[in-house]
Amino acid sequence: MSYFLTQVLNGLSFGLVLSLIAAGFAIVFTSTGVLNFAHGSVVLAGAYLVAVTQPTIGFWPAVLVGILGAALIGVLINALLVRNLADPNPGTAAILMLGVDILLLTELTRRIGNRVLPLGAPWGADVVRFGGISLPTGRVLAAVLAVVVFAGLWFMFSRTRVGIGMRAAAADGPTASLMGIRLSRTGATGWALAGVLAALAGIFLTSFPSPGVVPSVALSAFLAIPAWVLGGFDSVPGAVLGGLVIGLVTALTVGYERELHFLGAGFGEVVPYLVMIIVLLVRPQGLLGSKEAVRV
């Protein structure tokens, strides 16, 4: 039983980290209509900034640098490139982000090289134990932080002018614009927010139980895509739910790999995508997506 619980908690805490990334996808998509293929590189960039600045300025200031840096990268991508697209539409924007991803990832890979950059997080390799279950402290912190962040986002989107403006802009851009909401500002806010979430996810993805900053961290953003999609493209709560589902399903598939061996070796790697396809077949708009996002 404690084994089952361990795997469940592992899955849920990792799922919350995925949710941070998935929410970034959702926020960028709703505020500017861009499928952000460069999100993984932004996650890596945030973690990289923390890792290279923490030896000189200490961990917590470095976290601030990482968060601000990732947010700045997002804002710059939006202001310099997305807003200047020759044919602004979701297809060209997605490919544009691929170009950005190639640039960012190549440069970061070159800088990181063969090294495994330690993040210097104060929780090191500590573990929290309770009732026969042990969880890495980093994961527990990630889960707590994610809950706080999502509560903050909920507050922002439902109670503040900026958040409501963003929702209005997402629901109907031209009308929102007519009503005095500046789309350039809501777009920039969305990209900045996504950058902040990406940097936070990057910190937890590269601290224990992961070894440190390595280029393959950028790949984990791909795992967040099923989470985002199955939650519903335009929904931040959906992204949270999607992350939890994907984290849980993956952890249990891996944890019970021996019992599931008839499904083929490495089934845990495809199960997120299978879940995504099945959910889309039953509910094309995703678990919590708004109906009008899909016109059938």
Partner: peptide, 23 residues
């Protein structure tokens, strides 16, 4: 032998490690 297949994208082996300890 208890086999556990992973890919290079798997950088957090918590689930695999727990399964091995369990077994």
């Amino acid at each position: 032998i208890i086999p556990q297949e992973i890919t290079p994208a798997t950088t957090d082996l918590s689930a695999q490690a727990s399964a091995l300890v369990q077994d």
